[in-house]
């Protein structure tokens, strides 16, 4: 049996108290030592600000709504299918898609840290990483949904997926009524990030048209 290595004098306490100065110090040290390239940092930030985000997931969901064979494959082996679309990568190596129906509403959380399907949804929003979401969602998902303005019928069971391994979950929201005949781009606009985490529903086409 090994002993734990708890050390009250963690090295991190040597860094400056202000968080912005703390990361500046780390960046300076690592750059000077030839361990990181500042241009690579900018590239990573640009990737997650502009290239990889919830529109990837919305594309997958819209395809699933339009094509039953695509949806069947997505539910069977999401990793293989999203890889074909170019949505494989860091924090999305093992994907599972779960479908919302009249009977079941799926929600995703990571109570132990902040696991999230980056290649499909990007960097998780602040609330997904918050203590409140991590603590409450497994015990009172309907109360958490109320914080998002969502109320489910009593007959709909909630399934909360706690991402405790390297499997990343994508919720396929229910396709809104009145969307027959809409094309992929039109449907994608109805698929919000929150609807793919399960804290929201896909947008009502009438309501979103009125807003536009």
């Amino acid at each position: 049996m090994c002993m734990p290595h708890d050390d009250p004098d963690h090295p991190h306490s040597l860094l400056p108290p202000d968080p912005a100065l703390r990361i500046k110090a780390l960046e300076t040290i690592l750059t000077r030592k030839g361990l990181i390239d500042p241009a690579a940092l900018d590239e990573i930030i640009d990737t997650y600000e502009n290239k990889i985000g919830p529109r990837n997931g919305a594309h997958v969901v819209a395809r699933a709504w339009l094509d039953p064979a695509f949806k069947a494959r997505l539910l069977e082996d999401a990793t293989a299918l999203v890889s074909e679309l170019g949505y494989y990568g860091r924090q999305g190596e093992h994907m599972v898609a779960v479908e919302n129906t009249d009977d079941i509403h799926n929600m995703v959380v990571c109570t132990l840290c902040s696991c999230y399907p980056w290649p499909l949804l990007g960097i998780p929003p602040g609330w997904y990483k918050s203590d409140a979401y991590r603590a409450r969602t497994v015990r009172e998902p309907r109360a958490v949904l109320a914080d998002f303005g969502v109320t489910l019928p009593e007959r709909t069971a909630v399934r909360v997926w706690d991402s405790t391994a390297e499997i990343r979950y994508l919720v396929i929201p229910k396709r809104p009524v009145g969307t027959e005949g809409m094309d992929e781009a039109g449907l994608m606009a109805l698929v919000t990030r929150d609807s793919m985490i399960g804290t929201g529903l896909a947008l009502d086409p009438q309501a979103s048209e009125a807003k536009a």
């Binding site: 132990l112 609330w127 203590d131 409140a132 979401y133 603590a135 497994v138 015990r139 958490v144």
Partner: peptide
């Protein structure tokens, strides 16, 4: 390891 803990307050959407 905070799953199920009480007292954290509302989740703030963004």
């Amino acid at each position: 390891d905070m799953g199920g803990r009480y007292g954290d307050g509302p989740v703030i959407p963004e």
